[in-house]
């Protein structure tokens, strides 16, 4: 019984993540537009997650930015410069198909790639912190590629204090 319930909860979560990823893909080539609508107040964390996209995804065992990731990071850079009261942490993650130690290092490398990109677009380095969780914090849990590709990610997490 518990198992069934858990599975339902996870499936929902997974669907949410997927929807987010698709949304990010759909508007990836348009710049951030505060008038774009939606219920999120401009400049809010929700605005950042929904209208900008808080995460980018990587190929297996890679820390290179895809064209879609670059489009997302362009919008992140733009948004972060408008709302410069935020400091934030870039979390690097890996999928489960690697050893613990290597994945910790790989997550750090992914986070650093995002940090470098945002810095190159004018975001002040002192606002950014990076951390790697390796394969310790997956968002999608299953045994195939649909999950692995969700977990190979770098997430820009705004600090709540601002």
């Amino acid at each position: 019984m518990t198992n069934v319930v858990m599975r339902v909860v996870r499936a929902t979560k997974f669907a949410g993540v997927l929807a987010l990823a698709l949304a990010a893909a759909a508007c990836a080539n348009r710049p951030y537009d505060p008038q774009a609508g939606g219920s999120a107040p401009p400049g809010s964390q929700q605005d950042f997650v929904v209208n900008v996209g808080d995460r980018v995804f990587f190929e297996s065992d890679s820390s290179e930015l895809t064209s879609q990731s670059i489009a997302t990071l362009e919008k992140q850079a733009q948004w972060l410069q408008i709302y410069n009261q935020y400091t934030f942490t870039i979390e690097g993650h890996a999928d489960e198909r690697g050893t613990r130690e290597y994945n910790i290092a790989l997550g750090a490398r992914r986070a650093q790639t995002v940090r470098d990109y945002l810095a190159s677009r004018g975001v002040q380095p002192q606002r950014m912190r990076t951390i790697s969780y390796g394969k310790e914090r997956p968002v999608a849990v299953c045994n195939d590629i649909s999950c692995w590709s969700q977990n190979r990610r770098a997430v820009t997490v705004l600090s709540t204090s601002s």
């Binding site: 820390s63 130690e101 290092a105 750090a108 490398r109 650093q112 790639t113 470098d116 790697s132």
Partner: peptide, 9 residues
């Protein structure tokens, strides 16, 4: 141990 700085360890 490994020490990470930037993208390198």
């Amino acid at each position: 141990f490994s020490l990470q700085r930037g993208g390198n360890s």
